[in-house]
Design a protein around this nucleic acid. Structure first.
Lengths: 274, 274
DNA sequence: AGGTCTATGTCGTTT
DNA sequence: AAACGACGTAGACCT
């Protein structure tokens, strides 16, 4: 794998090597002292500092300082990199459309410039995602509760797509929302939206989930996640929604409920345990 | 600014330079062919490929392929980098706690290794954020509607903090939720949560926002954003919530509504225009 | 191209 | 440390 490197190149030399790299579809890394301007969805200015600039052949541009996982400025894939010399300084302009955004990096000094024809044929194999949680649940629906029967995934409603839709042992519709990690209020709101939408579509009840949870609710909502915050648990209770502890990774616990059934979070109407 | 570079170093040489850089709190960039393992909140494996690895003095680790803005693997700030030679290969292990996460990068070949003592004293100046939208709105509350009086920001409720809380010309409480960009269903759910919480706290109505929007609603909810999706607009209408078009950037339009007042989205009960 | 949602999200702020 | 929400979120999948 050939690597082209220049130490402390002149602006002209840096321009030549970088322009060639961009043209050839190579990966470029520039170490230097630069200032950055951005204008697009928002706008930003950044004064001079030592930074790492990465230009990728897919149009990605990254400006990294010595701190933070997030680049201080960037351009997502799809941008076009242009290289120029301006007032004796190397300048990189990365532009994209829809939305129109411009990133301008002006180097006061280039410490080092490197270009490489990177080859990366491998795909990342990731475990523990929400998709894994769904697979686990569909493989053993009793993890939700005994008698639960999934009828489909990604069911479309007016309020969005439901992760898993099914029916309980009584034939009552059940909306299941999956989260790979501990959930807060927003997940409860999301579940509530879906349950409301299904109730409306099924033409069942208008809105009886207020207070009298359980018996009157003709559509159930179950949040499946490793755990839940206090506030979210309260919100679940207020809406008559339920929670089941489950982890995307089979080994990591999360199924600590010995009864195996969903808790009606915060509800006192728990007079009829399965 | 001194830069230390090694081209195609041996594993021993790479180890020496990289260990010294990590120890000294320098920024390191490694170009090489490597495989990556990650285990923590999730887990992943990645086969051999040409990549850019960045180690920052704050504990950040980044593994970038030739594609994408997001690193294929990473460690956020706070991790500890360890460098070793294993089976004649350079290996970097980046570990952190809470949560416990481990990133392991094993190099089959190191094309180039660079270390630099980066100095970056500048802060990013960002314009067009939600904070800017709030400032704009507080500077001229009539942008929401004539007679609107803000009474506070970040007001705490059982369901979270309200962006801007105030009262309209009639003295009716108004919950304002700000978004710097076009909003979808989740923003509507969020607003609804806050309005519900204020209604409960004010001890006003239990839940009259179903169907009979407007007249019975003793707490109003207004979503302020540049624009709204169709689905979100429908949801707003169903909940008796309102929308005001406003952009964080004064120049960029968004205040296209000639009437200047909030629309009750999707509502037909608009018989009493201000 | 736009809508909707997940993410090893990350990041800041507050409790 | 946990919780909560914003982010120029990015990225994937679908219409």
């Amino acid at each position: 794998v050939p690597v082209t490197t220049r130490r402390r190149p002149t602006a002209r030399e840096a321009h030549a090597v970088l322009a060639e790299a961009v043209e050839a579809g190579h990966l470029a890394v520039v170490l230097g002292r630069c200032a950055v301007e951005y204008d697009g969805r928002a706008a930003s200015s950044l004064g001079l500092g030592d930074r790492v600039v990465v230009l990728k052949p897919d149009g990605t541009a990254l400006v990294h300082t010595d701190e933070g996982r997030t680049p201080v400025n960037w351009q997502p894939p799809g941008a076009t990199h242009r290289v120029a010399v301006r007032d004796g300084c190397l300048r990189v302009v990365s532009e994209r459309s829809s939305p129109t955004e411009t990133l301008t990096v002006t180097f006061e000094a280039v410490y080092q410039l490197t270009a490489i024809d990177a080859a990366d044929p491998e795909e990342l194999d990731l475990r523990g995602s929400e998709a894994d949680l769904r697979r686990r649940l569909l493989a053993d629906p009793s993890l939700v509760e005994a008698g639960f029967e999934p009828q489909g995934t990604e069911r479309r409603t007016d309020a969005g797509a439901i992760d898993v839709f099914g029916r309980d042992a009584d034939g009552t519709p059940v909306v299941v929302e999956l989260k790979r990690r501990r959930v807060g209020p927003s997940a409860v709101s999301q579940l509530r939206r879906y349950v409301d939408a299904v109730r409306r579509e099924e033409g069942l009840d208008g809105d009886d989930a207020e207070g009298d949870a359980g018996e009157g609710a003709t559509v159930r909502g179950v949040l499946v996640a490793p755990s839940v915050t206090d506030r979210a648990r309260t919100l679940l209770g207020e809406r008559g929604l339920e929670f089941v502890a489950l982890d995307p990774d089979p080994g990591s616990g999360g199924d600590a409920d010995p009864t195996g059934g969903p808790d009606v979070a915060g509800s006192e109407t728990d007079a009829d345990p399965v």
